[in-house]
Amino acid sequence: MNDELPNDQDEDDEPTVLIEDGKLVCPYPDCSATDQIIELDVATRDNELCVSEDGAIIAHLGDYSFESDGFECQQCARRVSLPDGYEIVHS
């Protein structure tokens, strides 16, 4: 796979996702996958444990929080960044 960075970016910079015709496009020229950008996050959950009548340990889903850890193209598995001025809305 060709790992050349688009737009003469430094190695430490994550190239910016392109938006074409309302779709997210991987910025790497050797990939250019459409709508394959994902958010990576880290989750912390507090789940209360108990033992059921049949002896199984059950985890009751409790409080949780998520923190974004960046973005990646699912097709080529390389990190990318979002364009300036865009906000992520979780649904």
Rank of each mutant, 00 (worst) to 15 (best):
N2G: 12
N2P: 11
N2H: 09
D3T: 15
D3E: 14
E4F: 10
E4G: 11
L5M: 14
P6K: 03
N7G: 04
N7H: 06
D8F: 10
Q9C: 14
D10I: 01
D10A: 14
E11Y: 13
D12G: 10
D12N: 12
D13M: 11
P15G: 05
P15V: 04
T16W: 01
T16H: 00
V17K: 03
V17P: 03
L18H: 04
I19Y: 01
I19D: 01
E20M: 06
E20Y: 05
D21K: 06
D21V: 01
D21H: 06
G22E: 04
G22I: 07
L24A: 14
V25C: 05
C26L: 06
C26F: 05
P27M: 03
P27T: 02
P27L: 03
Y28D: 01
Y28E: 01
D30S: 15
D30K: 12
D30W: 07
D30I: 05
C31V: 06
S32F: 00
S32W: 00
S32K: 14
A33Y: 07
A33H: 08
A33E: 09
A33D: 09
A33P: 07
T34P: 00
D35G: 08
D35Q: 07
Q36D: 13
I37G: 03
I37K: 03
I37Y: 01
I38W: 09
I38G: 08
L40I: 10
L40Y: 06
L40C: 10
D41L: 13
V42R: 13
T44L: 12
R45L: 05
R45F: 08
R45Y: 11
R45E: 15
R45V: 13
D46R: 08
E48H: 13
C50V: 02
V51C: 09
S52M: 11
E53V: 09
E53H: 10
D54E: 15
D54K: 10
D54P: 03
G55F: 06
G55W: 08
G55N: 06
G55S: 07
G55L: 05
I57G: 02
I58L: 15
I58P: 06
A59V: 04
H60C: 09
L61G: 13
G62A: 02
Y64W: 14
S65F: 08
S65I: 07
F66H: 12
E67N: 14
S68E: 09
D69Q: 12
G70D: 08
E72F: 02
C73W: 01
C73K: 03
Q74T: 08
Q75P: 00
C76G: 06
C76N: 03
C76A: 04
R78K: 15
R78A: 06
R78G: 05
R79P: 04
V80C: 01
V80P: 00
V80N: 00
V80H: 00
S81W: 02
S81P: 00
L82M: 14
L82F: 07
P83V: 03
P83D: 03
G85A: 07
E87Q: 12
V89H: 10
V89G: 01
V89S: 11
H90I: 08
S91M: 08
S91G: 10
